[in-house]
Computed example of a mutant assay.
Amino acid sequence: MHVEYAANETKEQTRWNAVNWRQANRNVRNLRQRIFKAERTGDHRKVKSLQKLMLRSYANTLLSVRRVTQINAGKGTAGVDQVVIKTPEARGRLVDELHSYHPWQAAPTRRVYIPKSNGKLRPSGFQPSTTG
Protein backbone atom coordinates (compact mmCIF):
# COMPACT_ATOMS: atom_id res chain seq x y z
CA MET A 1 0.00 0.00 0.00
CA HIS A 2 2.19 2.83 -1.28
CA VAL A 3 0.04 5.77 -0.29
CA GLU A 4 1.27 9.03 1.20
CA TYR A 5 -0.81 10.58 3.97
CA ALA A 6 -1.44 14.22 4.74
CA ALA A 7 -3.86 14.78 7.60
CA ASN A 8 -5.57 11.43 6.99
CA GLU A 9 -5.97 12.10 3.26
CA THR A 10 -4.31 10.38 0.33
CA LYS A 11 -2.24 12.31 -2.20
CA GLU A 12 -2.62 9.76 -4.97
CA GLN A 13 -5.28 7.27 -5.95
CA THR A 14 -5.50 4.20 -3.75
CA ARG A 15 -3.90 1.17 -5.37
CA TRP A 16 -6.24 -1.61 -4.28
CA ASN A 17 -3.88 -4.49 -4.99
CA ALA A 18 -1.07 -2.88 -2.97
CA VAL A 19 -3.08 -2.44 0.26
CA ASN A 20 -1.54 -4.02 3.36
CA TRP A 21 -4.71 -5.72 4.63
CA ARG A 22 -3.04 -7.10 7.75
CA GLN A 23 -2.09 -3.59 8.87
CA ALA A 24 -5.53 -2.18 8.01
CA ASN A 25 -7.25 -4.95 9.99
CA ARG A 26 -4.89 -4.37 12.92
CA ASN A 27 -5.59 -0.60 12.95
CA VAL A 28 -9.36 -1.08 12.92
CA ARG A 29 -9.25 -3.88 15.51
CA ASN A 30 -7.13 -1.75 17.87
CA LEU A 31 -9.51 1.18 17.51
CA ARG A 32 -12.51 -1.07 18.20
CA GLN A 33 -10.79 -2.37 21.33
CA ARG A 34 -10.10 1.17 22.51
CA ILE A 35 -13.78 2.06 22.01
CA PHE A 36 -14.84 -1.07 23.93
CA LYS A 37 -12.50 -0.30 26.85
CA ALA A 38 -13.63 3.31 27.05
CA GLU A 39 -17.29 2.23 27.06
CA ARG A 40 -16.57 -0.36 29.71
CA THR A 41 -14.99 2.25 32.00
CA GLY A 42 -17.87 4.65 31.38
CA ASP A 43 -15.78 7.35 29.69
CA HIS A 44 -18.47 8.51 27.25
CA ARG A 45 -16.50 11.54 26.05
CA LYS A 46 -13.63 9.30 25.00
CA VAL A 47 -16.05 6.85 23.35
CA LYS A 48 -17.52 9.64 21.24
CA SER A 49 -14.07 10.94 20.31
CA LEU A 50 -12.88 7.45 19.31
CA GLN A 51 -16.05 6.84 17.27
CA LYS A 52 -15.37 10.06 15.33
CA LEU A 53 -11.82 8.85 14.79
CA MET A 54 -13.19 5.54 13.47
CA LEU A 55 -15.47 7.35 11.00
CA ARG A 56 -12.51 9.33 9.65
CA SER A 57 -10.14 6.35 9.59
CA TYR A 58 -8.63 5.46 6.22
CA ALA A 59 -8.20 1.81 7.27
CA ASN A 60 -11.88 1.63 8.26
CA THR A 61 -12.88 3.02 4.84
CA LEU A 62 -10.68 0.41 3.12
CA LEU A 63 -12.17 -2.47 5.09
CA SER A 64 -15.72 -1.21 4.60
CA VAL A 65 -15.31 -1.02 0.81
CA ARG A 66 -13.67 -4.46 0.80
CA ARG A 67 -16.55 -5.97 2.76
CA VAL A 68 -19.21 -4.47 0.50
CA THR A 69 -17.50 -5.09 -2.86
CA GLN A 70 -15.70 -8.40 -2.31
CA ILE A 71 -16.79 -10.28 0.83
CA ASN A 72 -20.53 -9.56 1.05
CA ALA A 73 -22.84 -12.12 -0.57
CA GLY A 74 -24.70 -9.29 -2.37
CA LYS A 75 -21.53 -7.87 -3.92
CA GLY A 76 -22.88 -8.32 -7.46
CA THR A 77 -26.16 -6.52 -6.77
CA ALA A 78 -26.44 -2.83 -7.62
CA GLY A 79 -27.46 -0.45 -4.85
CA VAL A 80 -29.76 2.55 -5.00
CA ASP A 81 -27.18 4.32 -7.20
CA GLN A 82 -27.36 1.43 -9.74
CA VAL A 83 -23.56 0.94 -9.55
CA VAL A 84 -21.66 -2.34 -9.08
CA ILE A 85 -17.96 -2.07 -8.28
CA LYS A 86 -16.01 -4.98 -9.78
CA THR A 87 -12.47 -3.86 -10.66
CA PRO A 88 -9.61 -3.02 -8.28
CA GLU A 89 -9.28 0.42 -9.88
CA ALA A 90 -12.96 1.15 -9.23
CA ARG A 91 -12.57 0.00 -5.61
CA GLY A 92 -9.62 2.38 -5.18
CA ARG A 93 -11.61 5.27 -6.65
CA LEU A 94 -14.54 4.44 -4.35
CA VAL A 95 -12.27 4.47 -1.30
CA ASP A 96 -10.86 7.85 -2.31
CA GLU A 97 -14.33 9.27 -2.97
CA LEU A 98 -15.77 8.01 0.32
CA HIS A 99 -12.77 9.12 2.32
CA SER A 100 -12.89 12.66 0.92
CA TYR A 101 -16.65 12.99 1.60
CA HIS A 102 -17.31 15.06 4.75
CA PRO A 103 -21.03 15.09 5.61
CA TRP A 104 -20.33 16.93 8.87
CA GLN A 105 -19.14 20.02 6.99
CA ALA A 106 -21.90 22.48 6.18
CA ALA A 107 -22.47 23.60 2.63
CA PRO A 108 -21.79 27.30 1.96
CA THR A 109 -24.67 29.70 2.44
CA ARG A 110 -26.20 31.19 -0.70
CA ARG A 111 -26.55 34.97 -0.65
CA VAL A 112 -29.85 36.32 -1.97
CA TYR A 113 -30.92 39.97 -2.14
CA ILE A 114 -34.54 40.75 -1.32
CA PRO A 115 -36.06 44.06 -2.50
CA LYS A 116 -37.23 46.39 0.26
CA SER A 117 -40.16 48.84 0.10
CA ASN A 118 -37.77 51.83 -0.22
CA GLY A 119 -36.19 50.35 -3.38
CA LYS A 120 -32.98 49.10 -1.74
CA LEU A 121 -31.97 45.45 -1.46
CA ARG A 122 -31.68 43.52 1.80
CA PRO A 123 -29.13 40.67 1.89
CA SER A 124 -30.39 37.32 3.05
CA GLY A 125 -28.84 33.87 3.15
CA PHE A 126 -30.17 30.34 3.21
CA GLN A 127 -28.71 26.87 3.32
CA PRO A 128 -29.45 25.02 0.07
CA SER A 129 -30.94 21.58 0.59
CA THR A 130 -28.52 18.73 -0.15
CA THR A 131 -31.28 16.13 -0.22
CA GLY A 132 -33.50 15.90 -3.31
Score class of each variant (00 low, 15 high):
106 A>K: 07
74 G>T: 11
58 Y>R: 14
46 K>Y: 03
115 P>I: 09
126 F>H: 11
74 G>H: 12
17 N>A: 00
110 R>C: 14
40 R>L: 03
10 T>K: 04
41 T>N: 03
1 M>A: 14
43 D>H: 04
127 Q>D: 08
115 P>Q: 05
31 L>P: 14
65 V>Q: 06
84 V>I: 08
1 M>V: 12
103 P>C: 09
74 G>Y: 10
16 W>D: 00
117 S>G: 05
25 N>S: 08
1 M>G: 15
15 R>I: 02
111 R>V: 15
124 S>P: 01
89 E>F: 00
50 L>R: 10
25 N>V: 10
75 K>I: 01
34 R>Q: 15
117 S>V: 10
11 K>P: 06
93 R>F: 00
13 Q>R: 01
99 H>C: 11
52 K>I: 02
28 V>A: 09
78 A>K: 00
36 F>G: 01
115 P>W: 05
79 G>Y: 06
71 I>H: 03
8 N>L: 03
107 A>S: 11
59 A>D: 11
23 Q>G: 07
103 P>I: 11
124 S>E: 11
55 L>C: 13
109 T>Q: 14
7 A>E: 03
67 R>S: 02
113 Y>C: 07
89 E>A: 09
20 N>R: 15
119 G>L: 06
21 W>F: 12
13 Q>D: 11
23 Q>E: 14
82 Q>Y: 10
71 I>P: 03
88 P>R: 00
2 H>D: 09
69 T>G: 03
34 R>D: 10
3 V>N: 07
101 Y>A: 08
33 Q>A: 06
91 R>W: 01
59 A>E: 14
126 F>T: 06
56 R>G: 13
67 R>V: 02
56 R>V: 04
123 P>N: 04
32 R>D: 15
31 L>Y: 08
54 M>Q: 13
72 N>P: 01
8 N>E: 10
52 K>G: 05
16 W>P: 04
49 S>L: 13
111 R>P: 05
21 W>M: 10
85 I>D: 01
40 R>Q: 13
49 S>C: 02
124 S>D: 11
74 G>W: 05
14 T>G: 01
110 R>M: 05
7 A>T: 06
92 G>Y: 01
35 I>A: 02
54 M>V: 03
58 Y>H: 12
131 T>H: 12
58 Y>D: 07
98 L>A: 05
106 A>D: 14
119 G>A: 12
114 I>A: 08
